[in-house]
Design a protein around this nucleic acid. Structure first.
Lengths: 192, 192
DNA sequence: GTCTATAAGATGATAGAC
DNA sequence: GTCTATCATCTTATAGAC
């Protein structure tokens, strides 16, 4: 069974958001990659902002599912934390794709409030999930936090985003992996 | 005495790179803000990539001078570290300006190697300066590092970039200040 | 759902007058 | 150095046929 055109469009658009930024690609770029005309893309997503919103909504759903999967698997808090960071490594992939939410965030001043809301929702979801994990880790004694769970969560999430950007500048996935490992070591005090 | 037009152009362009991204503004936007025609801008910067390069070169010079000033002032390593982070707070300003190098970095796949080189130079300069500071801090006993100076430097610099982006999403300078303070606390183990 | 045709406006850029 | 004029191309978007 074939992938729906509307999904194919989002696939390409997402890749382009991740590698070129919101203003770094056009409907024409997508049409050439996918083999249909720009008018057909407008049928699925009338405005570019609709496309951006759809792409971020799908990304947020995927993020939710990734987090739920980690929760479902259980295991030590340390392991769950590491699995969280692996989401970002997976996003980066082999070709240096940055986080779509981070990319759109850098274009904040040029996008609609509706799209901005998707970006904020991503940060809030990630921070809340981390905060909850960190607090439970401290309660069970698996973790000894070096500061408030809230600050730790915020800094962890944003650090991952920053690490991805710099790693990409050097086209160096190893650097990203090393940075992530080190960020984790700064946060995880006590072994499980 | 008046500011040279070529500088005025860079001023506006830099602000727009910081708030809208490399592809988020045009020569027309600059011309309207500055009160000259686009052709005049092309006289000073024939191609947009020339403008980007000039703007980043100027930014790198300013960064160098900021670092030299910190070195010249001397003082405890902890204080110098804090002054380093204040450079990024200053960049963020009152209106949520992101780091121009970080902004261009997110457009890596769409820009020339010459411009990419300016971005890499910025990371390398910042990381090298931090690494040197951290190592000297450890030697003098002012600091007790939680890991290699290199990893610490890389993570510190990229964390600042990430923190700026997320803070901007929430239009929250206080969040940025709190994050930076916390990042420093994670790195600084022992008081001076 | 996809196409052709088309539109209005933006964009990066150049030639040549002043 | 700045202007007018002009350019080819790109960009987002719509109308209507198939």
């Amino acid at each position: 069974m074939n992938i729906k055109t509307s999904e194919k469009i989002i696939d390409i658009a997402q890749e382009m958001v991740q590698t070129r930024g919101y203003h770094g690609f056009s409907y024409r770029d997508i049409s050439e990659r996918i083999g249909i005309k720009t008018a057909s893309i407008h049928y699925h997503y009338p405005a570019k902002s609709d496309l951006a919103k759809a792409l971020l909504e799908r990304g947020l759903d995927a993020f939710d599912k990734d987090l739920e999967a980690i929760d479902a698997e259980g295991g030590h808090v340390k392991v769950r934390l590491q699995k969280f960071t692996q989401i970002f490594l997976k996003t980066y992939g082999d070709d240096g794709r940055l986080c779509p939410f981070c990319m759109i965030a850098t274009s904040q001043n040029t996008i609609s409030g509706e799209v901005q809301a998707e970006v904020s929702a991503f940060w809030m979801k990630g921070e809340a999930w981390l905060e909850n994990l960190l607090e439970s880790g401290e309660r069970t004694g698996e973790l000894e936090l070096k500061g408030s769970a809230q600050l730790l969560s915020r800094v962890l999430l944003s650090s991952l985003e920053g690490a991805m950007i710099v790693a990409k500048s050097f086209d160096d996935r190893d650097r990203l992996e090393a940075s992530i490992g080190f960020i984790l070591s700064l946060i995880i005090e006590k072994g499980g």
